[in-house]
Amino acid sequence: MSRKPYVREVPKTTWYMRNGRYMRYMAREVTCVFLALYMAGLVIGLVRLMQGPEAWQSYLAGLSSPVAILFHLIAFGFACYHATSWFNVTPKAMRIPQGDGFVPGKTIVGAHYGLWGAASLVIIVLMGVL
């Protein structure tokens, strides 16, 4: 038998370095780490709140430190990237019949942005900023 198919191994840890497409995908996935950290921060806040006013105050003080503000800015940036990169692929998963065709992808993506904006507005109002 002369056959001897050659298998090219895919590097298990650095595969996403192979091209920009994979890098963008990893960026979408990795940014969720910052969202998780932010959520962890919120949970800590809840715990501190339960521990009493003093603990809560020190938590708030911690939040206003430059490091915390910097973290929140970064997390906010990544959250935006994470959200938008997902919004942009939603039309693939949602095929909504309309007339002879389907609801255009732009409409679906637009609706996501619209809902995002509306939800943000409600939260801002509830927070009493407006």
């Binding site: 497409r21 994979y22 995908y25 996935e29 692929v89 039309p91 693939k92 998963a93 095929r95």
Partner: peptide, 26 residues
Amino acid sequence: CSFVGACSEVCPKDVDPAGAIQQMKI
């Protein structure tokens, strides 16, 4: 499938397999 979406980007016939897979997940 982790929805990289590369399949649909390279598809020469615009089949959009990534879309098909997400719809099947749902």
